[in-house]
Design a protein around this nucleic acid. Structure first.
Lengths: 196, 196
DNA sequence: TACTAAATTGACTAATCAGTCTATAATGTA
DNA sequence: TACATTATAGACTGATTAGTCAATTTAGTA
């Protein structure tokens, strides 16, 4: 459900093609390494059409950021489930991100590369809730139940996200190793690190 | 000792200034986002001088990669010390990388950003030994002494390096949190993850 | 000193860039 | 149908780019 619209706005077909072409090219060659002419050509539209939908190249990358980040977050918006153990709750969230990274490598890489870049305005960043939302509930719960170490929320957050990135990158590098057993082992590295 | 020369070749002063200016600008604005004119201006030389030392912009970034990566590796070339415990050995290596990242944020960020970029040729990558060298000895030792989990070397390597990146990035974001206690806690996250 | 090679300069160039503009086609609406 | 709005196209433009080149200075050597 959460695929063709962005903040509730349905994307036109050519707009979509431009975003998809940009995603591929920005990841492969970077922002300045990709010309608007190349994007238009890859998307199969004229440059005029590109600038009809996106006023500037910067607006294009900002809209692309919203597009990719929402695509990731809508996969992982679930909240804490009391019927499952604490560890299972964390693992579920972890797996959602890891699967997103594996199934959508371009979107994942784009978020990684550009979430700290100067082209993405702070206004854009404010428009998407961070992936911290899901984690905050889990963190409070974990501290309260004394399941996780007494480490600051910021540290756990960065550690959790860093672990997701590591694991996704690892299985991208060694795709033949991707199976449930290795995925479980990778999660244990994280879990044994943060749990008491 | 290992600062002004590169593969034993001593750098001329202007060559040095060009590399330093490039490092700053490439990290801040990216490869294509930085013009050779800007680099020359920042370095205080003419564009002709830049192209006298570096045939092309690509050669410049490749030499810069060698320069930064050697700068990192020469800080951490020590081998396994049997007088210390296994954990202490790992921690020492870990701290070397973390300190490098904190003390040389531009070099660290440059390596992070460009080690997977298409501008760095595979020939260049072959010229610097990977940071795997120091780790391999530790890994074999750890498996043999049954101190670490039975996980593939590649996974442990990626996990170790991912952790270094996470920790450096974290303390860059929250510099007020940088102290020995928090550094120790950060290491425990890694250690408890990989140790049996 | 006299000669050579290397270092340094900055004006210059062909190519490429983001973005514009005018014309035309498609779509919606009354 | 008649009219207005939106979508699409691609040639075009002024600015910027990586890299060149001829002229000049500096450094090394005999």
């Amino acid at each position: 459900m959460c695929q063709i619209n962005l903040h509730g706005v349905i994307l036109k077909e050519k707009e979509r093609k431009i975003l998809d072409a940009s995603l591929k090219l920005f990841v492969e060659r970077g922002f300045h390494g990709t010309s608007t002419a190349e994007i238009a050509k890859t998307a199969g539209v004229a440059t005029g059409t590109l600038f009809h939908y996106f006023k500037t190249k910067e607006e294009l990358i900002n809209r692309l950021y919203l597009y990719t980040k929402e695509s990731m977050l809508c996969e992982s918006s679930k909240h804490y489930d009391d019927k499952k153990t604490f560890k299972e709750n964390i693992k579920e969230l972890w797996l959602k991100f890891v699967h997103f990274g594996i199934n959508e490598p371009y979107k994942f890489q784009f978020i990684l590369t550009f979430h700290c870049s100067p082209y993405i305005t702070s206004l854009t960043k404010e428009q998407v809730e961070t992936h911290a939302e899901g984690m905050l509930g889990i963190y409070k719960n974990g501290i309260q139940k004394q399941k996780i170490k007494e480490i600051s929320f910021e540290m756990i957050m960065d550690y959790f996200w860093g672990n997701v990135v590591t694991v996704v990158t690892h299985f991208e590098k060694y795709p033949e190793k991707l199976n449930e057993k290795n995925l479980d082992m990778a999660f244990e590295l994280l879990w044994d690190g943060i749990s008491k």
